[in-house]
Design a protein around this nucleic acid. Structure first.
Lengths: 341, 341
DNA sequence: CTGAAAGCGCTTACAG
DNA sequence: CTGAAAGCGCTTACAG
């Protein structure tokens, strides 16, 4: 009973059956008699036998592994991952496990030459792409992936003609809710922080929601209150300083992400302005910090659990040949303290 | 030039050499002539060929993969991972990548039957174990892992006779620094939050440091100020309520983790006590929230980068047969606002 | 420096 | 229901 690294052949010898029968028994094939199957499975358990994944994978051309590719436009020095994406990780891992898949993670610079390799090398059956980045660079890579018949799911809005499938929250609706909330509270001059170009579809969609809410309120969205800012705290900070330096008046800020919102709050506070009395602030994401800063940040929550599970279900669907549609989930406005009211 | 899923044989045909030569060329074997090697590598690039990992792994009995096993005593419902461990993830992934290893992640309940399987199935060459848990349950599992000749690194203190190797910060020194800081600020009655039993060696070590600092100051550590608490915000909260309910006096709190510290701060504030004026608070970990709560938390920082890299270097060393020692890194006291001073 | 050949440990048609 | 056999795509002794 004591074999060092048992193979299915060892189990077969122990059970007095052929190796093929062991293989069938362990995969619960109906072709093998129940009594035989149970006996074999017991022996496998007793000997700590586990099917060699490399051998099985080589035969079946499957790895039962999903590669999670996180990319970020951050500078390579710091290996800190955007906490917003990190919070999805647990859900992704768990739902992958429940469907019988392992999760391989990889951090990539957006500029890296990624990664047809994961699937081509049979390390993963499919990819989940997570990150905010420049859509134009991004898109080229997606096309290359699609060309290579790689299966992948993108976290992000379904952009017209974009290769592959995606899953995201309804960013426009989120932007609308955030802005309407501010408007309903009587705020008149709402600054928008984020990139509005089509290079960043999620931010652009949030901006669309912002505009839409203004129009519905009979206001045309003020152009001088739109500040380009990247998804970094320091950029949120700078954006506010710019606005202040220009002497533009504003009584609210809608930041495209919580990270920017927090930078913005700090800048406001550093300049002696009270949040929310002088300036109300809304973020987007509801990342872990949001509830803990002072004042607690009102924000648009994306349900990370739904996101993680949706992404995994879809990629597994793609892998297993089921039809998959890109889809959107509805975000919720989480009202805390940063808008007063 | 257009092959769908090329194998080394396809590359061989294209290059007019044998398949063996392709294999050698791609592994940069000195056995193949430079000109030949370059030509083959070029063809591989042009055709998007990547070595099939399953086949290579089957031959070599290596996966070039590290499994990262995160376990937590949290209830399974919530798949949120302790942000402290999450912050190590980026560093682990990057340093693994730089050494040519992939990272597989898995969440486990401490009660799960883990995971000889990862190595036995050839999915991973070695394991990194990350989590706080009950040492007694834990230890049994470690012994099973060691029995199965699994290579693993534990994040945590090297406990006497514990199977395997570990890497951690010097928890006792950290506890000492935190407590001495409080004592130096004139605090006299310092509550300790955490489990002090040997079931939780890291917390017990932090407590040792706490006692040690008291002794060095000529004080014997007060026993009625020691409250058992698990690594959850709610437990930190409850611990303070208990102390308050009992009417024990205290002017400072040393919590074994930032998570507990934050729960403690909230409880204090909820009861109208000012932090740090009435009660100073120190945490441990310097997890992402610590700098952002109000007042910003003074805490003992464990260098996550050093931790991640240390863990990876060690497990790769173990995999590649180099001698590896368990070791400790020095933690730093990060002074912010929660102790005044 | 290169090739022919064996074999890693499985899965699955094929035959019975 | 079970077994003998082929073959997945590599790596690496062995021979030249």
């Amino acid at each position: 009973m004591k074999v060092v690294n048992p193979t299915s052949r060892d189990i077969a010898d122990l059970a007095g059956v052929s190796q093929a029968t062991v293989s069938r028994a362990l995969r619960n094939s109906p072709l093998v008699r129940e009594e035989t199957r149970k006996r074999i499975q017991q022996i496998a358990r007793d000997t700590n036998y586990f099917v060699n994944r490399n051998a099985a994978g080589l035969r079946t051309h499957q790895s039962h592994t999903i590669a999670l590719l996180l990319f970020d436009e951050t500078d390579g020095a710091d290996a800190q991952i955007n906490p917003f994406f990190l919070s999805m990780l647990g859900y992704i891992t768990r739902s992958a496990a429940s469907l019988g898949y392992d999760v391989l993670i990889s951090l990539q610079q957006l500029t890296d030459d990624w990664h047809i390799e994961y699937q081509a090398s049979n390390r993963a059956d499919g990819l989940i792409l997570l990150g905010y980045g420049d859509y134009l660079t991004y898109r080229e890579k997606l096309a290359a992936l699609a060309d290579a018949n790689t299966r992948f799911m993108i976290w992000g809005p379904a952009v017209k003609d974009q290769p592959g499938h995606s899953f995201a929250c309804d960013n426009e609706s989120g932007g609308y809710k955030a802005t309407k909330h501010l408007l309903d509270l009587g705020r008149k001059k709402i600054a928008f922080l984020g990139i509005t170009s089509r290079r960043c579809p999620e931010f652009a969609d949030r901006y669309q929601g912002y505009c839409h809410a203004h129009h519905d309120a009979g206001i045309s969205p003020p152009d001088d209150l739109r500040v380009n800012a990247n998804n970094k705290e320091s950029h949120g900070y700078q954006a506010i300083e710019e606005l202040l330096a220009q002497g533009v008046e504003f009584d609210a800020v809608f930041a495209s992400t919580d990270i920017m919102a927090i930078g913005a709050m700090r800048a406001l506070q550093a300049h002696g302005l009270d949040v929310p009395r002088d300036v109300a602030v809304v973020g987007f994401d509801d990342f872990p910090l949001a509830a803990h800063v002072t004042p607690a940040l009102t924000t648009v929550r994306q349900d990370m659990r739904q996101a993680g599970e949706g992404l995994v279900t879809s990629i597994v669907g793609l892998i297993e040949g089921q039809p998959v549609e890109s889809s959107l989930m509805a975000p919720d406005l989480i009202i805390r303290k940063s808008c007063g009211g």
